[in-house]
Design a protein around this nucleic acid. Structure first.
Lengths: 190, 190
DNA sequence: ACTGTATGCCAACGTCCGTTGACCTCTGGC
DNA sequence: GCCAGAGGTCAACGGACGTTGGCATACAGT
């Protein structure tokens, strides 16, 4: 019986090596400074392999950011816990997966990265906000507020590395940001 | 009687033209994609002038981000208004001056930009937080929280351009973020 | 009026980048 | 055992970049 995880092509191991190296380089250096040559060297292959399998640097980047980013379903949660749990999940996501770091770094200067970031939040936070309000416009606004706080914390904690933010224990971040997010989602509009 | 504003050197007009062009390019494109050649063309001069007056691209960038960024003194304000006024002032700053946009864009991928961003907030927000708490560590933590919310809003509003955030009227931003910042500064630690 | 210096342009250098095409090498099916 | 094709290397191209040095011009001090 065939192993369903077995590579379908002999090249699959190379393909994923490239992808993994690209993930890390893009996340660490941003789009421009992450060179195809450096990525290829990390993956232990020739730069021309990148072109063969991903067409161009842009194609490689598109493959890197084309990942499903799924937040756990929070609909079953008690309404009062949504803020804290959401903040906690985002912290997990940032620390376990480099895709968000990539998007934040690249989104600052690259329109494709910014667009993907918008998509991610439209797909993840917007539906969440729609649970609490009636009009779509109000939901979008609340989702943007949540995004501003969650992304802002990621920015100062993981990218800019403000010491007080980077050193703050996870529980403290949740305790401070949870009520903020909770209020953005559920409070009456001011 | 000599005009005190008169240029001390004939080249001062060129120098400032370069600086202004650099400001806009760095703010719009980030460090890597803002080329010396493009900046020179915007300023209407030869690229070699940039090297003559600023030594290198890095020197030019250093000159761009070496500006005083002064928040109005909020010490005279009623304690309850600090959050809202602070948010309002930051919105003004972002919309009137491209330096912060530059720092945010560049800070995402460039360590010098990130370091300058840390300096700015250590100089501006940290003293503010020290008004409300006793220990220096607590003040640093609260300043970081304020920075996360203020920078996060700037990120989604001006850089990533999330439509709901970008379209939100200034007064609404103040109304939503003011209480958050107020809480980060004055609330009892959770 | 003369001269030293500041200001500016032009052409070029060396480097690094993304990308290409020619050329080996291994492997699986017949 | 042969061979088509996939996997991989190598060298090179064309272009853009930061940067440099040489040369022309305009100004200011005498």
């Amino acid at each position: 019986m065939a192993d369903p995880d077995a590579p379908r092509r002999r090249s699959d191991v190379t393909r994923t090596a490239i992808l993994e190296a690209a993930r890390q380089r893009f996340a660490a250096d941003g789009y421009e400074r992450a060179t195809v040559r450096a990525i290829a060297q990390d993956a232990g292959i020739d730069p021309s392999m990148v072109m063969r399998y991903y067409g161009s640097k842009e194609g490689l980047f598109a493959a890197v950011i084309d990942v499903e980013l799924i937040l756990p379903d929070l609909n079953a949660l008690p309404v009062d816990d949504v803020g804290a749990v959401l903040v906690g999940h985002f912290l997990d996501l940032w620390e376990s997966d480099s895709v968000l770091q990539t998007l934040l770094r690249v989104g600052a200067t690259n329109e494709a990265g910014a667009a993907r970031m918008r998509d991610v939040f439209a797909g993840q936070i917007l539906p969440l906000a729609e649970r609490f309000v009636v009009t779509r416009k109000d939901a979008a606004r609340r989702a943007a507020l949540v995004a501003s706080q969650v992304l802002g914390m990621a920015l100062v904690r993981y990218v800019l590395k403000f010491a007080p933010a980077a050193d703050m224990p996870r529980a403290d971040v949740v305790a401070w940001l949870g009520p903020t997010v909770q209020r953005y989602l559920t409070a009456k509009a001011p």
